Amino acid sequence: MGVESGSEGVGVANAVGIASDVKIVLRSYLSTNHLYAAHFAANDAQDRENSLAGDENLFDLRHRGYVLTAIVESVAFLEAAINEIYKDAFEGRGSYSEELAEDCKNYMAALWGAAGDRLPVLDKYDLALSFAGKELLAKGEEPYQSARLLILVRNYVVHYKPHDRSTDDPHAFEKSLKGKFADNLLMDGSGNPWFPDHAFGAGCADWSWRAARSFAEEFGRRIDIRLNFQVADFSENLPL
């Protein structure tokens, strides 16, 4: 005898058996966890920035940690969200792929079995829309543009390589990022190059999780399914 159960949110088993041979199978979906982690880190970055703004100490390691966490967790959310759909299709699970046409699920399952886990994140979203016969997100427009930029910043952080920068030799990210969010208040008046020191503030942290959520929402709208973060029942809702 076997009992299988799963949860749409955090993976809490909801089936209980009496027989000694009962097997409870738990299937966890972590995408929403990543999104909330990014949101909470952004809130902490804002609180820290507000409390320290105006002090002589322009760099705060705890504040920087919150910002980097928000960036990395936002992209982790994007990757987990699409992987959950592909993996469910591959393993024949209902969950988030249940509403998709059989042909679409078959294509997704075949791709996952061949190379899905090795494909770039946004390519997996594009291909899912193609398999479903839906319109792709325009790469030069929002929310695709910010999602792509967010992933590039995350890659910069995670695969970091030291480099020299000066105010008259700005990083390429300065052109693409500046103006998307408020500058780091802790660096106000500092002569440091804009990226990363003026960029990596609470504004960047907040932009990160919102950019990720906006992309996922538009993807879900086009493919006509609700993702984990849209159905998971948590006591604290994400702000608009």
Rank of each mutant, 00 (worst) to 15 (best):
M1I: 09
M1E: 01
E8Q: 11
V12S: 15
N14D: 05
I18M: 08
I18T: 03
I18F: 03
V25A: 03
S28F: 13
S31V: 08
T32P: 04
A38W: 13
A42C: 04
A45G: 02
D47K: 15
R48I: 14
R48L: 13
S51P: 08
S51G: 05
L52I: 05
A53Q: 08
D55F: 13
N57S: 08
N57L: 11
L58P: 00
V67S: 00
I71M: 03
F77T: 09
L78T: 02
N83F: 14
I85G: 08
E91W: 14
E91A: 14
Y96L: 15
C104S: 09
C104E: 00
M108S: 02
M108N: 04
W112N: 00
K124D: 00
Y125K: 09
Y125H: 09
A128M: 10
A128D: 00
L136T: 04
E141W: 12
Y144Q: 10
S146D: 15
S146H: 12
R148F: 04
V153T: 08
Y156Q: 01
V157E: 14
V157G: 11
K161C: 04
D164L: 08
R165V: 12
F173V: 11
E174G: 02
L177C: 11
K178C: 01
G179F: 13
K180E: 06
A182M: 07
N184S: 03
L185T: 06
S190G: 12
G191S: 14
N192V: 15
N192L: 13
P193R: 15
P193Y: 12
H198C: 07
A202V: 15
A202S: 15
C204S: 02
C204R: 07
R210W: 02
R210Y: 01
R210F: 02
E217R: 08
G220F: 00
I223R: 07
R226K: 03
Q230Y: 05
D233E: 03
S235P: 08
